[in-house]
C-alpha cells in the first residue's frame, strides 16, 4: 500500500503526463479519494498551465540581427588569426627552397623534382586546411564539458572557497568559476553556504 508521500512523488510526472498508464491509473484512483493529494495536484497543474500559456516575445528580425552580430564577431577573430596563419605557407616555401638547394647538391635531377612536388602538395594542403573556415579558430574543449570528472569531495569545495576568498585580485568571478568547474550542483550549493559563512 502506497502512502500519500509516495503519491506526492509521482504527482509532478502525473501532471506532465509522463507516467506509465498503470501508474497514471493508480494515481487517478488515489486522487478520487484523497483531498490532500488532489489539492497538491491542482497546484502543480496551475503552475504548469501558466508555463504553457506563457510565450516569449521575439522582436521581429532578431534572427537576422543575430546573424550579423555573430558574423561580425567571428570575422574580427579570423582576420587576426589569418595574419598569423599566413606565415605558415610562407615558412613552408622558405623551407622548400632550402631543401631543394641541398637536394640539388647531393641528389640526381628526377629525385629532386619529386621532392619538390611533394613539398608543393604539402604546402597546398597547409594552405587549404589552415585557412579553411573551421581551421581558423582553435577548438576549445572546456566550453562544452559537463564536469564529468567527479572530484566532488569536502576538500574540493573547501579548496574552492579558499581560492575565491584568498584570490580576490584575480577577476573574482573567474577564479570562482575556475574553482567550482568540477562541482556538481549539490556541492556547488555547499560552496555558496561556506562563502556566506566566510564572508558575511
Amino acid at each position: 500500500m502506497k502512502s500519500c508521500k509516495d503519491y506526492e512523488d509521482l504527482l509532478p510526472l502525473y501532471t506532465s503526463g509522463d507516467l506509465s498508464s498503470t501508474d497514471h491509473n493508480k494515481v487517478s484512483e488515489h486522487l478520487k479519494e484523497c483531498k490532500e493529494c488532489r489539492d497538491y495536484q491542482l497546484s502543480l497543474s496551475a503552475i504548469t498551465a501558466v508555463m504553457k500559456r506563457d510565450s516569449v516575445e521575439m522582436t521581429p528580425g532578431y534572427g537576422a540581427e543575430l546573424v550579423v552580430a555573430l558574423n561580425g564577431r567571428l570575422d574580427r577573430r579570423s582576420t587576426w588569426q589569418k595574419r598569423l596563419l599566413w606565415t605558415i605557407p610562407a615558412f613552408a616555401t622558405a623551407m622548400a627552397v632550402v631543401v631543394i638547394t641541398i637536394i640539388s647538391l647531393i641528389e640526381t635531377e628526377p629525385a629532386g623534382n619529386q621532392w619538390v612536388a611533394e613539398l608543393n602538395r604539402e604546402r597546398d594542403y597547409l594552405n587549404f586546411t589552415d585557412t579553411g573556415y573551421f581551421g581558423e579558430i582553435p577548438v576549445d574543449d572546456s566550453d562544452i564539458s559537463n564536469g564529468d570528472i567527479d572530484l566532488s569531495t569536502d576538500d574540493l569545495y573547501r579548496d574552492a572557497v579558499y581560492q575565491i576568498v584568498e584570490n580576490p585580485q584575480i577577476s573574482e568571478v573567474d577564479s570562482y568559476l575556475l574553482a567550482t568547474a568540477n562541482l556538481d550542483n549539490e556541492d556547488f550549493e555547499k560552496v555558496i553556504e561556506q562563502l556566506k559563512y566566510e564572508i558575511l
Binding site: P168, E172, V173, Y176, L177, T180, L195, I199
Partner: peptide
C-alpha cells in the same frame, strides 16, 4: 552560478 556567486563576493 556566476551571478549567484557575485552576490556574495
Amino acid at each position: 552560478r556566476r551571478q549567484k556567486a557575485r552576490q556574495y563576493i
